[in-house]
Design a protein around this nucleic acid. Structure first.
Length: 488
RNA sequence: GGGCCAUUAGCUCAGUCGGCAGAGCACCUGACUUUUAAUCAGGGUGUCCCAGGUUCGAAUCCUGGAUGGCUCACCA
């Protein structure tokens, strides 16, 4: 136990385990009969004054004063001070306490009182060691700042940086509110396969895995869309799935290889209904979790209260770049203007794709929002229904808050013949080397051939919504264990 | 994948022109019965990210590598 490469502090703690056991003191104790959390007492001291309580927590600070001592212990809801005296505990127990280290988890029982300075404190009459900590904690004053250590050893981050816990508590509440908002309105939560025989529903590179018994490659899902729409065909007219999606793409402050999405489908609805659903649900979640729809994100003040503005993508491009795509008749004219604006392009892009590229390149991150950008070119929307008024566009929107795309939605394409053609166009792109283009999903087309009711569909990037609502600058701040390269 | 930056004690960080490896907290020894980043006296505990190179001498300069951050590309 004392071999290997340990610091002096680790060696000291390991030696204590041996010493404790020699004295019959077990360093990894049984559960302690806890009656309260620290916060229960701190928030309502009058009800507890003079009463006995039992708490369990991690020692975060120790202050010894000879024959008396103070410490703070931390449980899942906060910290509380404890006070220990040799004349109350007896010499043996008091010596045992003095041998404990910051980081150890103990259970304490005692009477609540207030110190001279007024701090609510537990006057400990008995305690036991529940778990001996063998490693020193990060510094009490500066906390754990090293971003790499915070992500790799999130438990340390949670221990010493209390605001981190708050973010993940908020995340949990946001998801809980989303789920109850939807189920209360008659949406059925379902689970569809995570392993797909072909990856569809989005333009992204998938992760590939292998099933040994079937001897086939499987893809981790890049979207839940195509299975959920099969369910709508089957008569489940209001469904949603909240779950993990995997995309084999780069990592950035806005992208993690695995992330959480919710996709929502409602039959006999269209994308305008999805706008109302999204803005109402987002505002409702903000009110429940934050108590207000007015938020601050990285210095920007935004109000999530509906209604959010609805703007056509082409109008935004005109407004922000001065380029009027109404006057651009064909692909050649579009490519010409793209070259003039130094827009880097894959070869042979069409007018619609260039319009979309203009939006992404020059407009997207300038949208403070919340705002709906609607009517996307059909070429970049292979699963969305064409606008009745102009078949070059689709009834699709994306929602932006603080320059981040947080949702993508459309009136679903229900025409199986059109869907097959769109897939075929994607397949030809794939053949030309675009490995993010869709694969042909014959079974999905077959499902559409049986008839799918007019349907509105909405996908939300849950992590990004959590970022917005918790004022977190990086997606890694809202994912407990973000993807990291293994060390060494 | 490209560019820029970072990596020194358990943690947070200094380290000048290339000349014995530093501080605060933590830790160790001692004092102290209501402290508050407790205080007082004493103690430095290290693979300076790794591997080479230059040099009498490298934490410091050079080359290569590792990990991370930001950013660009890509994507949501």
């Amino acid at each position: 136990m004392l071999t290997g490469h340990h610091s002096d502090q680790e060696l000291n703690r390991r030696k204590k385990i041996i010493a404790f056991r020699q004295q019959g003191l077990e360093p990894y104790g049984e559960k302690y009969a806890v009656t309260h959390y620290s916060r229960d007492i701190i928030e309502d001291p009058d009800s507890f004054m003079g009463k006995n309580v039992s708490l369990a927590g991690r020692i975060m600070t120790k202050r010894g004063h000879g024959k008396a001592a103070f410490a703070h212990i931390q449980d899942s809801k906060g910290q509380i001070q404890i006070y220990l005296r040799e004349d109350q505990l007896g010499e043996k127990n008091y010596t045992f306490y003095n041998e404990l280290d910051v980081g150890d988890i103990i259970g304490v029982t005692g009477e609540v009182f207030a110190t001279k300075k007024g701090e609510i404190t537990v006057n400990v009459s008995s305690f036991s060691l529940l778990s001996k900590s063998l490693r020193p904690l990060p510094e009490k004053w500066h906390g754990l700042k090293d971003i790499e250590l915070r992500y790799r050893q999130r438990y340390l981050d949670l221990m010493v940086n209390p605001e981190v816990r708050n973010v993940f508590v908020a995340r949990s509440k946001i998801i809980q509110e989303m789920r109850s908002y939807l189920t209360e309105r008659g949406f059925l939560e379902v689970e569809t396969p995570v392993m797909h025989t072909l990856a569809g529903g989005a333009n992204a590179r998938p992760f590939i895995t292998h099933h040994n018994a079937l001897d086939i490659d499987l893809y981790l899902r890049i979207a839940t869309e195509l299975h959920l729409k099969r369910l709508v065909v089957g008569g489940m007219d209001k469904v949603f799935e909240l779950g993990r999606i995997f995309r084999n793409e780069g990592i950035s402050t806005n992208h993690n290889p695995e992330f959480t999405s919710v996709e929502i489908y409602q039959a006999n609805a269209d994308y305008e209904d999805m706008m109302i659903l999204l803005e109402e649900m987002t505002a409702s979640i903000a009110r429940e979790v934050l108590g207000t729809t007015k938020i601050e994100y990285q210095g920007k003040h935004l109000d999530l209260a509906p209604p959010w503005p609805r703007r056509k993508l082409q109008d935004i491009v005109l407004e922000m770049t001065g380029v009027d795509f109404d006057t651009i008749e064909d692909d050649d004219a579009a490519r010409k203007i793209a070259r003039e604006r130094n827009l880097e392009m894959k070869p042979n892009l069409s007018r619609g794709e260039i319009l979309f590229a203009f939006f992404e390149e020059f407009c997207e991150d300038r949208l403070d929002g919340p705002v709906f950008i609607k009517d996307y070119p059909v070429e970049v929307s292979p699963l969305a229904r064409r606008c009745s008024s102009d078949p070059r566009f689709t009834d699709r929107f994306e929602a932006f808050i603080a320059g981040k795309e947080i949702a993508n939605a459309f009136t679903e394409l229900t025409d199986p013949l059109d869907q097959r053609e769109r897939f075929e166009l994607q397949v030809s792109r794939r053949a030309l080397g675009d490995d993010e283009a869709h694969m042909m999903d014959e079974d999905f087309v077959t499902a559409l051939e049986y008839g799918m009711p007019p349907t509105g569909g909405l996908g939300i990037g849950v992590d990004r919504l959590v970022m917005i609502l918790t004022n977190s600058p990086s997606i890694r701040d809202v994912i407990l264990f973000p993807t990291m390269r293994p060390k060494e």
